[in-house]
Design a protein around this nucleic acid. Structure first.
Length: 739
DNA sequence: AGCACGCCGACT
DNA sequence: GTCGGCGTGCTC
């Protein structure tokens, strides 16, 4: 009988698998899909994942090599997760080996055992105990404990002698005792202790929360995609906690995804206060072994609740019961380089494969999710704030009518004063860090450019630097124009400048700024948040960082300093993002007893987007935006794939994409790919970034299926194009950034 | 991605 | 005379 052939995914950027012969002295049954192996690849050894067994290969026998070592004795991923990863590799057109590598903690990718291990010892069968002197009581004490010739662990030997470790070391050295490592067995606790740990009373659910929870409970046990559209402060988290308690009652696990920025200590405290050490967290601050331990705990079922960021969607789970994706609209769920997956979309696919519900929560759902929920009817709403809190009132401030000095209009300045005088806190939002976005010469019109990007340098006054926010390049701040030697001026507003202006206007009000420049370490953010909580800070200015996840219960006035950045963008998603930002920031206001006030500064108060948002809320905006998307054939009514190319000169990138376009047209002619538009190629909006020139080709399709079929045929052709050699290119399926 | 091979410039 | 620059090609 011929030897089986193993198809193995290796961690390389190659879009194919490799065939190998079984390892020597290895039972064929040990080689199952999902098992990791070490294989020779070229001149190196690589970690591979068995994806299939066959009996036939087209690879000539002379080229076939043998698996080196089999790492696992059971598959790392269960069949559902394994299938999901194969699907993801297919769907996102990313090399399968890299997909597997991305799905496991780093140490597993380096060959670490999947199960926790501990040392064990036993008496060697050929041991000659007679040679050990009688007076060596320490050694004999340990030998006595080992006299049944079985493997013993630390617990079994610890009582034998005070220095049992030293004795074992000696016995191993004498060749009397042998040592090994055994998998640490774990017991899956099915009994739930949900609620038992809560020291503080569990809040009562209001009627809407109760209804929502009932709907989620009813969905447990089968696949549903549920959208929980709950306004800020409506008590989504409490609903999650109650739903999770139900999942634990069923003896199942819950997987909770959140954006990194929303994984605040407060949120984690809420989970651990309710569920104790049943919770594990997977976030960026963990080191490799902590991450592996959390992952193992989830896989064995010891951890009943897993909270994590994007990549946690790949956590192996012993008994999954519910997937929750909080802030599902957040762009950070889409990986923006390499394996460009969406954790939200894979979360839905995973739930479907497990036959469990997935709960997508947001105050500002993505249009994709909203459209899906409207079609399926699985829309759960929490339209009101929980408790006493009132919704904030939104008002536009017409900058053409009022003008602004240093970015602040007169009505805004007055309202800030009034709120401060009433003893309240004020939050100002500006999504632009630094002092000013441009350093300008009024005499000759020069403005400081980045040498490597098609962008202006941002003025950072305090650090006395000019910084490119796209490539990180820095140079000293200058006062003089390099071409005409006139004095140069910072133009426009950044958070640093607003902070300075506020300090001058309200010298009595303690001030804090929250952006990437003022907060470098996570601890600093917590410290500032604590000062705000304790009302030591009265004025708060910040970027996106302040708009996500944090609660500012004493803030009664929110000012959106510049609403106009997203109004006229070429990117069809810009208006959605702007609406989400406005609603999210507005949600920071008035979360306690005082009603909040939101002032939005704009040059375009009549803009339909702002009008819809003010008059009809996020739902009204979404209706209008969806109608626009449908008319313009944008997602969610079509599907996109973006082909990006970069090269040291733009011509090469464009030439490659023109060749790609020709190849795509060719494929389209050969088969039935109606409903696919090939748009471009075109230079990227910021063509030169960090010294490389970038261009795009966009594929737009009526259906995901045809788009997939076209990509499947097109990508191998792209690999073979001669013009591919001088460019770096990548595929982005369901892109969210079109540049 | 690694990792080699291979063919042209500045150094002990 | 070598060390080493990164273009090109291959990995079952």
């Amino acid at each position: 009988m011929p030897e089986p052939i193993l198809r193995i995914a290796v961690d390389t950027p190659l879009r194919r698998v490799f065939d190998y012969l079984p390892a020597k002295n290895c039972s064929a049954n040990a080689l199952q899909p999902g098992i990791r192996v070490w294989v020779p690849l070229g001149r190196r050894r690589a970690l591979g994942m068995i994806v299939a067994r066959t009996t036939h290969t087209d690879i000539p026998a002379s080229k076939l090599r043998r698996i080196d070592t089999v790492i696992d004795d059971e598959p790392l991923f269960d069949s559902v997760l394994f299938g999901l990863l194969q699907f993801a590799s297919d769907y996102y057109r990313h090399p399968i080996g890299e997909v597997f590598a991305a799905a496991m903690p780093g140490l597993l990718g380096k060959g670490a055992p999947v199960n926790a291990q501990h040392s064990v010892w036993r008496l060697r069968s050929d041991a000659s105990i007679a040679d050990i002197p009688k007076r060596a009581t320490r050694l004999h004490a340990v030998l006595h404990a080992l006299n049944d010739h079985q493997w013993h662990d630390e617990h079994a030997l610890a009582d034998s002698h005070a220095d049992w470790r030293g004795a074992l070391r000696d016995l191993v050295q004498r060749g009397v005792v042998e040592t090994s490592r055994q998998a640490t067995s774990t017991t899956l606790e099915i009994a739930s202790n949900a609620g038992a740990l809560e020291a503080v009373p569990i809040p009562q659910l209001n009627a809407a929360q109760q209804q929502t929870l009932q709907n989620i409970t009813a969905a447990l046990g089968s696949f549903h995609t549920l959208l929980l559209h709950g306004v800020t402060g409506s008590g989504k988290t409490e609903v999650y906690l109650r739903a999770i308690a139900q999942v634990l009652e069923r003896g199942e696990q819950a997987l909770v995804l959140a954006p990194e920025i929303a994984l605040t200590p407060q949120l984690l405290t809420r989970f651990t206060a309710r569920f104790g050490d049943a919770v594990v967290v997977l976030h960026s601050a963990l080191n490799d072994s902590e991450r592996l331990n959390a992952w193992r705990a989830a896989r064995t079922g010891q951890a009943r609740i897993v909270i994590g960021t994007r990549s946690a969607i790949f956590t192996a789970l012993a008994k999954p019961g519910l997937i929750i994706i909080d802030e599902e609209h957040d762009a950070s769920y889409k990986q923006q380089e390499g394996f460009r997956y969406s954790a939200r979309d894979l979360g839905i696919a995973r739930a479907q494969r497990h036959g469990i519900p997935v709960l997508l929560g947001s105050a500002t759902p993505s249009l994709e999710t909203l459209q899906r929920a409207r079609q399926t009817g699985n829309l759960l709403s929490l339209p009101q704030r929980a408790g006493e809190a009132q919704p904030p009132t939104l008002k536009l401030i017409d900058l053409r009518q009022h003008g602004a000095t240093q970015g602040l209009s007169t009505p805004v300045m007055m309202r800030i004063r009034e709120h401060l005088d009433a003893g309240h806190q004020v939050l100002l939002y500006l999504n632009r860090r630094g002092f000013a976005p441009v350093l300008f010469c009024p005499s000759c019109g020069w403005s400081a450019p980045c040498a490597r990007c098609d962008a202006r340098l941002t003025v950072h006054k305090r650090q006395h630097k000019l910084v490119c926010h796209h490539c990180g390049h820095e140079q000293p701040l200058r006062n003089e124009c390099p071409s005409c030697h006139a004095e140069v001026k910072p133009v426009g507003q950044g958070t640093e400048r607003i902070e300075e202006t506020l300090a001058q206007l309200y010298p009595d009000a303690p001030l804090a700024r929250i952006d990437r420049d003022s907060i470098s370490r996570k601890g600093e953010l917590d410290a500032v948040l604590a000062r705000i909580q304790q009302r030591e800070v009265k004025l708060l200015v910040g970027t996106q960082m302040v708009s996500k996840g944090h609660h500012f219960p004493h803030v009664t006035l929110v000012v959106i300093l510049d609403a106009d950045q997203g109004l006229f963008s070429a990117d069809f998603r810009a208006s959605e993002r702007l609406a989400q930002s406005i609603v999210q920031v507005a949600g920071r206001a008035g979360r306690e007893t005082h009603a909040g006030e939101v002032l939005i500064q704009t040059e375009y108060p009549d803009h339909p987007l702002l009008q819809q948002l003010l008059n009809a809320g996020y739902e009204g905006f979404a209706d209008a935006a969806l109608a626009e998307r449908e008319a313009a054939h944008w997602p969610p009514f079509t599907r996109l794939a973006l082909l990006r190319a970069e090269a040291n000169d733009l011509g090469k990138a464009l030439q490659f994409l023109r060749d790609t376009r020709t190849a795509a047209q060719h494929i389209k002619h050969g088969k039935q790919y109606s409903g696919i538009q090939v748009l471009g190629p075109a230079p990227a909006p910021m063509t030169r970034k960090a010294g490389v020139h970038r261009a795009h080709l966009l594929l737009q399709s009526d259906s995901a299926k045809t788009l997939q079929a076209l990509l499947a045929a097109l990508i191998p052709k792209m690999d073979e194009l001669p013009s591919a050699k001088s460019v770096r290119w990548s595929v982005d399926v369901d892109p969210i950034e079109l540049f």
